[in-house]
Simulated scan of single mutants.
Amino acid sequence: MLRHKAYKFRIYPNREQEILIAKTMGCSRFVYNHFLSLWNEAYTKTGKGLTYHACSAMIPQMKKDEQTIWLQEVDSISLQSSVKNLSDAFSRFFKKQNKRPQFKSKKNPVQSYTTKNVNNSIRIVHHSIKLPKIGLVKFAKSQDPKGRVLNATIRKNASGKYFVSLLLEEDIQPLPKTNSAIGVDLGITDFAILSDGQKIDNHKFTSNMEKRLQREQRKLSRRGLQAKKNGINLLEAKNYQKQKRTVARLPGCPVARKSNESTERLSE
């Protein structure tokens, strides 16, 4: 049975590839915000938005314009994907499935772009992944994907690490049913107690990491306030950005990222 399956790997781009990835993320964000502005203008005047095909047809002309000729430097499919994401967001908005699309900010600690596999432009070669315009990038091959690659999303998180998420079409056979189940009871003395009597210890690791996270966040807040006092933008404050990456790298990444964003809002 053909099904879609996603894989996520950490990638290790070299310096030149990092620069090109940053350019692609910036161009994708620019295209998204540019057409969002046009879309909002059309929606205000007519009560209707634009279409994906109408916006996508404008991209070739933007590449020829002197003010936006730098769009030629990056993967063209990533720009089209950015417009497609905007179109899908507005479709869900008109169906009242989500809020109105918002402009993307370069201050967001997580940046990404998506590209599609066209003529085998995305493929795995031993311990490297070939990406459009980027070329072969080394990656941590923790799994062995088997199937046809549909698209890839390249992401840089708050800690400065790079990841790629691949969507593949694979022939997946369902596992046989065991007709068995087990209950899990979360507790304080024991982390979890299973219905078969097995107990999982409640280690102090989580508590210790919470204390360390709080300590590092206080340091982040102090550096943010000091930068503000000195009139330095947080994006240009090296000590602040270094501490921000330290907080993001702590175990329990979702908690760290959420707390990190709250700290940044307070310091600003």
Score class of each variant (00 low, 15 high):
residue 4 H to I: 11
residue 7 Y to F: 15
residue 9 F to H: 09
residue 14 N to D: 15
residue 17 Q to W: 06
residue 17 Q to E: 04
residue 20 L to N: 00
residue 21 I to L: 15
residue 21 I to M: 15
residue 22 A to M: 09
residue 27 C to T: 09
residue 28 S to G: 11
residue 30 F to L: 04
residue 31 V to T: 11
residue 31 V to H: 05
residue 33 N to V: 07
residue 38 L to M: 13
residue 40 N to E: 14
residue 42 A to Q: 13
residue 43 Y to N: 02
residue 44 T to M: 09
residue 45 K to M: 03
residue 56 S to A: 15
residue 61 Q to F: 07
residue 63 K to V: 03
residue 67 Q to V: 10
residue 69 I to C: 13
residue 70 W to L: 08
residue 71 L to W: 04
residue 73 E to V: 06
residue 73 E to W: 04
residue 79 L to A: 06
residue 81 S to C: 14
residue 81 S to L: 01
residue 81 S to R: 12
residue 86 L to G: 01
residue 87 S to P: 08
residue 88 D to Q: 12
residue 89 A to P: 00
residue 91 S to M: 05
residue 92 R to E: 11
residue 94 F to Q: 07
residue 97 Q to W: 12
residue 99 K to Q: 13
residue 101 P to Q: 05
residue 103 F to H: 10
residue 108 N to F: 09
residue 109 P to Q: 08
residue 110 V to Y: 03
residue 114 T to R: 14
residue 114 T to C: 10
residue 114 T to V: 12
residue 114 T to A: 02
residue 117 N to W: 01
residue 118 V to C: 06
residue 118 V to T: 12
residue 120 N to T: 06
residue 121 S to E: 01
residue 121 S to C: 10
residue 128 S to M: 13
residue 129 I to P: 09
residue 131 L to K: 08
residue 138 K to L: 09
residue 140 A to H: 13
residue 144 D to C: 09
residue 146 K to T: 12
residue 146 K to R: 13
residue 149 V to K: 03
residue 149 V to D: 00
residue 151 N to D: 12
residue 151 N to F: 01
residue 152 A to E: 01
residue 152 A to T: 06
residue 153 T to G: 03
residue 153 T to C: 11
residue 155 R to G: 02
residue 157 N to L: 02
residue 158 A to R: 04
residue 159 S to Q: 11
residue 161 K to C: 11
residue 163 F to D: 02
residue 168 L to W: 05
residue 168 L to H: 09
residue 169 E to L: 09
residue 169 E to Y: 09
residue 171 D to G: 05
residue 172 I to N: 03
residue 172 I to M: 10
residue 173 Q to H: 10
residue 173 Q to T: 14
residue 177 K to N: 14
residue 183 G to K: 07
residue 183 G to V: 07
residue 184 V to K: 06
residue 191 F to H: 08
residue 193 I to N: 09
residue 193 I to Q: 10
residue 193 I to P: 08
residue 194 L to T: 08
residue 201 D to I: 12
residue 202 N to P: 06
residue 202 N to K: 04
residue 203 H to D: 12
residue 204 K to A: 13
residue 205 F to V: 15
residue 206 T to Y: 13
residue 210 E to T: 06
residue 210 E to V: 10
residue 212 R to F: 01
residue 216 E to K: 13
residue 217 Q to V: 12
residue 217 Q to L: 15
residue 221 S to F: 14
residue 223 R to T: 03
residue 224 G to R: 06
residue 227 A to Q: 03
residue 228 K to A: 10
residue 237 A to K: 05
residue 238 K to V: 11
residue 238 K to N: 12
residue 238 K to D: 13
residue 240 Y to R: 03
residue 240 Y to E: 00
residue 242 K to P: 06
residue 243 Q to M: 11
residue 243 Q to C: 08
residue 248 A to Y: 04
residue 250 L to W: 07
residue 252 G to P: 02
residue 258 K to V: 00
residue 258 K to S: 14
residue 260 N to D: 11
residue 260 N to I: 14
residue 261 E to T: 15
residue 261 E to G: 04
residue 264 E to A: 14
residue 266 L to R: 12
